[in-house]
Amino acid sequence: MSASVIVGIDGSEPSRRAVEFALSLAESQGVGLVVAHVIPWSPYSFNTPTENEERGERKQQELRAATTQIIEPAVEVASGHSCEVTPVVRHGDPVDTLVELAGEFSATAIVVGRTGDSRVKRALFGSIPGHLVHESTIPVTVVP
């Protein structure tokens, strides 16, 4: 896989700006753009039997919703640009999955929007961009 820039998005306003920034970065480097959305999911959660039974169908619904509501608008933003755009939707831990994707797509940089979490939530759990900066082995740009 040739080199690329990864932009992790969640459908928010900062993440739209992140897509624009990532586009200009990818174009200036002459590489492709991977537009990724990670649906938060853990293999270690506790579910009811009914939730388990419906999980397969729920996964498909989540993938469809993420594609139409989050990925397609972002790909639309990129449509007038020259670089090749690859849409990706995955389930998993957002930080770990973005780092994995970076490896898979030989990424040169990861771009994310700043999340609008509350102070309490940030203090308790930290923010996704914050964790990403700690975990990533390639440059991370956080777009406000």
Binding site: W41, P43, F46, P49, N52, R55
Partner: peptide, 24 residues
Amino acid sequence: GRYSKPEDAGEVSHFQALATAVSG
């Protein structure tokens, strides 16, 4: 999850099936 393929993410994991059965 040592044998779980990446494409199985989002489905019911072995841990989840076990945890649900154990809690029953």
